[in-house]
Amino acid sequence: MKEILLAGIDYFKTKMLRLSSATLYVSVGMFLMSSALSMGLFIDIDLAYGPLGGGFNIADRQTWPVGIQYGLLILGLISIGYGLIVVHPRHLKRVEEATQRQRVVVVDHRGLTFAVNKTVFESVPPEFLGRREEIPIDQTPYVSGNSRVDDPEKSLEEVLHIRRDIDSRVKAVDKKDVTVIYGGLASVPFTFLTGYLIDDDNDVEVLDWDRFKGKWFHIKSKGEEVRDAVISGLKEAETAEEVVVAVSISYKADLPALAKAFPGLPLVHMDSGDYQPNNHWDKTQQQKWAEQFVPLIRALGGAKKIHLTIAAQNSVVFTLGRTYDRRNCPPLCLYQYERDEDPAYPWAVEMPRKGSSAQIVWNK
C-alpha cells in the first residue's frame, strides 16, 4: 500500500504539476462534464435483444438527481472556458516574459568515446524556461577507442575555463534568473573538476545518461529511502600526512590496486555497499552521499595531501565535486583508474588551490 501511495504522489509531482494552469482547468472541466454524462444525463437508450424481447435501458441506471448532473455539467463548461479564455493567455504571457528574462546554460561534457543518440541540449526538461545557451566541453579528441585518456594535459585545458564561459554568456543577467544544466560522460577526475569549477554560483541541475534506456534523465528527488554509506579507516588516518580515500558507489573501488599504487599510506573507504549502475537517480540520495563526503575530507584537515579515487556515476562525481571546498579541505588529487595499467592509478587532477590552478600529477 505504501508503494502505491508513493507512486501516486510521484505521478502527481512529476506529471500533473508540469501541466500549465490552463491545462489543469480544462482537465478538471472535462472530468466534471464526463461525470455528469456518465450519470445518464441526456441519455435514454433502449437496447432490445434475445428472442423474448428483453432489453436494457441506460437511463435506468440514474441514481443522482438531475439538478446535480446539470450543476456538474455547468461547472465543467465554466472551468474549460475559464482555462481557455482567461488562464491560457496569462500563462503564455508568463512564459514569454520568462523566456526573455531567464537563461538556461546547458553544459554538455563529452569525454568518452561512448556515443549517445541525443545531446544534453535536446534533453533539457520543458519546465526550465528561458533562452538556452549551449556550452560544450569536448575532450573526445584526446581519448582513444576504449575511452582511455591519451593526453590528460590537453584534456584538462578543455575544462579549466568553464566558469568563465558560463559567466560570459550571462554577465548581463541576474543570477537568480540563470539555471545551469550539466550533463556528461567523462573521466572521473575531469567530471569532479567541472563540478568544482561550476560550484553553486547559480542554480544547478544535473542530467545523467541511462545506458539501459538510452536517454538522458533529470536527477531529482523521488521520495525513495535514503541510505548511508559506511566509512571505515578514518580514525587510523586522521593524523597521517598523506591519506588515500576511496569512494565506492556504483562499484567497489580496486582496493588492492590502491594499496599497490600507494604503499604504506592509510586508506579511508566510503562504501555505499550497493553496487549497481542504477542506485543514483534520487537527488536526495546523492545529497546524502555529499553530506558524508564533505565532513570526511574535512576530518583529514591535518593531511598535506589526499589521494582520492571515486567509483561512481557521472552525476554523483559531479555532485561531489561541487561540494569540495578548497578553503576548508586539504590539497586533493583525484586519480584516474585504468585497470590494465601499472600502476592502475597512473595520473590525477590536482584540484586548484589559492594561487594555483588545476594541474595533472603523474603517479610514478
Rank of each mutant, 00 (worst) to 15 (best):
F212M: 06
L320N: 02
L6F: 12
F114A: 09
L6I: 09
L258I: 09
V87G: 11
E3Y: 10
G71E: 07
R148E: 12
V107K: 00
L37V: 09
E133H: 07
I198D: 00
P266V: 08
K304Y: 03
D325Q: 09
M351P: 04
L207G: 02
V116N: 04
H88V: 02
A299F: 06
Y251Q: 12
N202L: 11
L258M: 12
N328I: 04
K220Q: 10
M33V: 10
E157N: 05
V105F: 00
L19E: 09
S144D: 15
R169F: 06
D138R: 02
W281A: 03
R164V: 08
Y335K: 07
Y337N: 10
L47S: 14
N278F: 07
I45Y: 11
D340G: 06
G302S: 11
I198V: 12
K283H: 08
P65Y: 05
S221P: 02
L17R: 14
V170T: 08
F293M: 08
D200L: 10
R169Q: 14
R103E: 01
E224L: 10
E291T: 12
L185S: 04
K176L: 13
A253T: 05
G53M: 13
P126R: 07
D60R: 10
L5R: 14
K118S: 15
P141K: 14
G223S: 12
R163V: 05
D342M: 12
V173H: 05
P277E: 07
V243M: 06
V66S: 10
I166R: 00
G40F: 03
F31K: 03
T319R: 03
V178M: 07
A7K: 13
I231N: 11
S357C: 06
L72T: 02
V86A: 13
N146Y: 12
V188F: 01
Q62K: 13
L160V: 06
G321Q: 01
